[in-house]
Computed example of a mutant assay.
Amino acid sequence: MNETKILIIEDDIDINQSLASFLKTQGYHVETCPSAEVGHEWMKKNSTDLILLDLMLPGENGFEFFRKVRTEGGPAVIMLTALEDPADNILGLELGADDYVTKPFDLHVLLARIRSVLRRSTSHDVSQPKLTTEMTFQFSAYTFYPLRRYLRGPGGLRKSLTANETNLLVVLCQNVNKLLSRENLLELTRADDCSPSTRTIDILISRLRKKLADDQVKDELIQTFRNGGYMFRPEVNTL
């Protein structure tokens, strides 16, 4: 029996009910909230594996809700947006969302996205040797704990990672000094996803660079090759 829990935060009653009914037929445990405020209260008492988050909510909007949830780590999030401006979708990914789906959407396409995000959230083999609870990576001044999805930086500072950031960093750690194209990285980290562009990889690389930026680390850890892709340069030790 599927024990995966999905929380839908959507103010449109028809979308809320139809989406919940469909996902229940697929074996998921589904809860719904009509607003961000109700969502916060629900999450104080309950846990979930994935949030389907409408951006155009009354009161606190989806972006604001997401920022608060992500500062606490939080579950995987797929943003549901009727916004037509691609910049809004890119902003969602830059903030750390695991994916976004534009309304109106086909329920089976959304289901494929949900399954893909959940696989990335729970599986870290990424076509590489399987990770164990003991496995960590050390490079430069960082220790990377992929199964717990965070970095321990200089001075012991802890930096949380999203599922996508974790999967990308695993691939980089396991392919040191190898030039990987955007297409390679997209295939390894989002192989089952429906994302239409390798722009996603550029966004994830940018987010990783920010989290790996530190005054004590002077070296360029992720090197960009024009029209080529990216290369992870530090010496990596696997523990």
Rank of each mutant, 00 (worst) to 15 (best):
D54C: 13
L55C: 08
L55N: 05
L55P: 11
L55Y: 00
L55Q: 10
L55W: 02
M56P: 10
M56E: 14
L57G: 14
L57W: 11
P58H: 04
P58Q: 14
P58W: 04
G59L: 09
G59D: 12
G62K: 07
G62F: 05
F66K: 05
R67C: 09
K68P: 13
R70E: 05
T71F: 00
T71N: 04
E72A: 10
G73V: 03
G73N: 06
G74R: 03
G74S: 06
G74H: 03
P75D: 11
P75C: 07
P75N: 07
A76Y: 03
A76V: 03
V77F: 00
V77H: 00
I78H: 09
M79A: 08
L80H: 09
L80F: 09
T81C: 13
A82Y: 05
L83D: 10
L83A: 10
L83F: 03
E84V: 12
E84W: 02
E84S: 15
D85R: 04
D85N: 11
D85V: 02
P86F: 02
P86M: 00
A87I: 10
D88Q: 06
D88C: 09
D88N: 06
I90V: 11
I90R: 08
L91R: 15
L91K: 14
G92D: 03
G92H: 01
E94L: 05
G96V: 09
G96T: 13
A97W: 01
D98P: 03
D98H: 00
D99R: 00
Y100M: 07
V101Y: 00
V101S: 01
V101T: 02
V101F: 00
T102H: 15
T102L: 11
K103Q: 11
P104A: 04
D106L: 12
D106Y: 09
L107S: 07
H108I: 06
V109W: 00
V109I: 07
L110M: 10
L111Y: 11
L111W: 05
L111Q: 13
A112H: 04
A112R: 06
R113F: 01
I114E: 06
I114F: 04
I114A: 10
R115C: 02
R115D: 09
S116K: 00
V117Q: 05
V117E: 08
L118I: 15
L118V: 13
R119Q: 15
R119D: 15
R120M: 09
T122P: 01
S123L: 03
S123R: 02
H124V: 08
D125Q: 07
V126H: 10
V126D: 11
S127D: 12
Q128E: 11
Q128V: 04
Q128I: 01
L131S: 05
L131N: 10
T132I: 11
T132C: 10
T133Q: 08
M135A: 05
T136E: 15
T136H: 14
F137V: 04
Q138K: 13
Q138E: 15
F139D: 14
F139W: 02
S140W: 02
Y142F: 08
F144I: 10
F144D: 14
F144N: 12
Y145P: 08
P146H: 07
P146M: 06
L147S: 06
L147T: 07
R149T: 05
R149N: 04
R149I: 00
Y150R: 05
P154G: 08
P154T: 05
G155A: 08
G156P: 12
G156Q: 08
